[in-house]
Nucleic acid binder design. Structure first.
Length: 203
DNA sequence: TGAACGATTTCCT
DNA sequence: GGAAATCGTTCAA
């Protein structure tokens, strides 16, 4: 049984499941926000048509081709930032999208960033919401998550009893191979986002 | 150099 | 359930 953080080097779907329950933490001058991951998606590099890295190495996807344990941040729909944990061996270009989580620390700060009318369960519900709650954007692209820095990924602990099981299904919003079941979530958790199929899905 | 396209969110009906 | 907001990335010419 591989230990943390060696678990990041395995096959992407396995790594994605492993990351459920882990904590993503950001210490900023404003304070700390810590989020427990409840929903993730695997993206498999060169063999996955839905992955940004599928068409090969570009300036944007450079980080994905590097060593595991770094953060890959991309800009979405002209207004949102989403974050992935780079996984797999160096050069493999696989990553796990952090889709949703529960805010464990810094609820007030997260709400200040997200808006006063956002409910607790929705603070980090959705990939762009999660990044906004953490206060992360393009400036965090490429940062190491395992070096004890301001942005860190930590193994989950002490809450295994709260897990009912892991659900799996198709990824949200992808148009290529829309049925590949590489989305994983903690069953029954209210912070998991709702599924939406891409209107342009082709198969 | 130009244009289509999103790994989305929010607000309206 | 549906549409608008908004711009970097990518591919075609």
């Amino acid at each position: 049984m591989p230990g943390w953080p060696d678990a990041l080097a395995g096959d992407v779907p396995d790594v994605a499941r492993t990351l459920l329950g882990a904590r993503i933490v950001h210490d900023s001058p404003e304070g700390r926000v810590a989020v427990r991951l409840t929903e993730v998606e695997a993206y498999g590099g060169l063999t996955d048509p839905a992955s940004h890295a599928w068409r090969g190495r570009t300036p944007r996807t450079e980080v994905m081709f590097g060593p595991p344990g770094r953060l890959y941040v991309y800009f979405s729909y002209g207004m949102h930032w989403c974050g992935n944990v780079v996984t797999g061996p160096d050069g493999h270009a696989s990553a796990v999208l952090m889709r949703a989580g529960r805010v464990l620390e810094g609820v007030d700060l997260a709400r200040a960033r997200r808006g006063p009318r956002v409910t607790d369960r929705s603070l980090a519900r959705g990939p762009a919401c999660l990044m906004q709650a953490l206060g992360l954007d393009r400036g965090a692209d490429g940062v190491g998550l395992l070096d004890g820095g301001a942005v860190r990924l930590e193994p989950g602990e002490g809450d295994a009893d709260r897990v009912d099981g892991v659900g799996a299904g198709p990824r949200v919003g992808v148009s290529r191979e829309p049925d590949r079941p590489w989305r994983f979530w903690l069953s029954g958790d209210e912070t998991v986002s709702s599924y939406k199929r891409s209107p342009r899905a082709v198969r």
